[in-house]
Amino acid sequence: MPADTILKPMKILKTINNFFLSLKIMSGFFFVFILVACAGSLFLTQNLAFFSGIDETPLFRWLSENKNLKLIWWIYALIVLLGIIATGTIFCTIEGLLKRVNRKLLVAKLSPQIMHIGALLMLFGNLLTASAGFKADILLKAGEVRTVLEDKAVRLESVSVETDKNGYPTNWEAGLRWIENGSESVEHKISPTHPLYFGQYGIYSQAVSAGEKTALIRVCKDPGAIWALAGGLLLIAGGLGFFYSHFYVKPLSGRT
């Protein structure tokens, strides 16, 4: 076999490796990401009607239904940029973990990689949120049953509102039952920031009217949330390790 046929792919692999391991190049992508995110904020504010449904369905489904590239190019750009940054992060993490290191410097070596893994998990969580998930806002009257999905329904039993002396609502509660495959749960109370979880579904109280005995509830399923949370916690843990090792143990060396 000619040496060229082996060397050429090796050269290409090396070029790819150098590309994704270059902090300078990846920093460039970071910078472009920031610029695109800022530009996107302007598109959002200037096209409120167009973007009004973007938070109501998973992002990828919304993108498949809204194809006006002039208005949404920046979302595609953000996705591509995040993909490149994530790939660079994977390369950097693998390289960092493969290096041999003195046990004393273990925290210094591992903490940036823990941060990277945390960031990757956050991105993975966001990817799941953007591709799968469910969200429905339902207005219910007391005693009413509404179907959420094929075999899932919810029944509103009661509503109550607490107000201050000016009549401003300080808290409220909605009592409801979750019905799945025909079997009803016991009555549960939900209030702002105190949702109820049934399996992967969360039920959130958004508003109530004591006079009309109605409640606006939100039923959500977000498979990416737990991954994003795990990633966030890892990132913070790694960050603390990085701070400790960088400022109290040994400074890290420079890279190109």
């Binding site: 302007l42 973007f51 969200k135 959130y204 949330a225």
Partner: peptide, 15 residues
């Protein structure tokens, strides 16, 4: 815990 999502497409979130 309040709204069932951790991300919204708003200028604030983007910034």
């Amino acid at each position: 815990t309040a709204y069932g999502t951790y991300w919204l497409w708003t200028p604030k979130e983007l910034w």
